[in-house]
């Protein structure tokens, strides 16, 4: 008799099926554009633009998978890497939900809470953008208001506004453990000019590995 699948195994199976199906759909989109309008891309410009953006984005993309999968859980990861906007939305939403529910990312409860929060967040985002897009087409001043210079600083500072609150939650619960990584990251970002918004993705795994290492030492010595 066939062994019954666990919930996690079925999440992996379904995640792969959905993932590959959506991959095909997404590649079909620019292909269909070429066919419908009977044009080919401008190869020269395509190549130059790809050379400029691919190395960095592919590197960050690969690093992100290894860093975020353990934090998001399987279901959350399958959803997040399709819907995107991970560090500015999906990751904080899942981390906050698991913290409130008092569950760990590696447990099945954590897996469920993370999946629910990321799925809800993706659905709400999609609806807000659909409503927004319809409003943009029908009521022009809304687009003008949202992209007005007055509001611009608020949207530009979304990451600091997000991580300020999140940091308080985690640091207050792990004061001793947070000292070393914060000192390391602050000095790196302040004194190494190459570290900025574009490279923060690379620094996340550095921070994670360092903190886990420090935690292991402190744990072995009974400091935490």
């Amino acid at each position: 008799m066939k062994k019954e699948m666990t919930y996690l195994e079925s999440v992996h199976r379904d995640g792969r099926i959905w993932g590959f199906t959506l991959l095909v759909l997404i590649i079909l989109f620019p292909t269909a554009l070429c066919l419908i309008f009977g044009v080919l891309p401008k190869w020269d410009a395509l190549l130059k633009a790809l050379l400029a953006v691919l190395p960095m984005y592919w590197a960050v993309g690969i690093v992100e998978i290894f860093t975020y999968v353990p934090m998001l859980g399987a279901g959350g990861a399958y959803l997040s890497f399709v819907t995107g906007n991970i560090s500015n939305l999906k990751l904080p939403v899942a981390v906050d939900a698991m913290e409130k529910a008092d569950v760990k990312a590696s447990s099945e409860e954590g897996e469920i809470i993370s999946t629910v929060s990321i799925a809800v967040s993706s659905i709400v985002t999609t609806f807000i953008i659909i409503v927004g897009v319809i409003l943009l087409i029908t009521v022009e001043p809304i687009g003008a208001f949202l992209s007005s210079p007055v509001l611009e600083p608020a949207f530009a500072q979304i990451l600091p506004a997000l991580f300020g609150g999140l940091a308080v939650v985690f640091i207050s619960k792990n004061v001793k453990l947070s000292i070393a990584p914060i000192i390391l990251m602050l000095s790196l970002f302040i004194f190494v000019p190459a570290l900025n918004e574009g490279t923060v993705g690379i620094m996340v795994p550095v921070g994670v590995l360092f903190t886990v290492g420090v935690a292991r030492i402190m744990y072995k010595r009974g400091w935490i």
Binding site: F163, I190, V200, V204, V208, V212, V214
Partner: peptide
């Protein structure tokens, strides 16, 4: 340890973004 590991992972991620704020 599993719990400490979990906290360390999130703290490491948050510390990188805190660093970015100071860049």
């Amino acid at each position: 340890w599993a719990e400490t590991f979990n906290n360390a992972m999130f703290l490491g991620m948050i510390s990188a973004f805190l660093g970015f704020v100071f860049s």
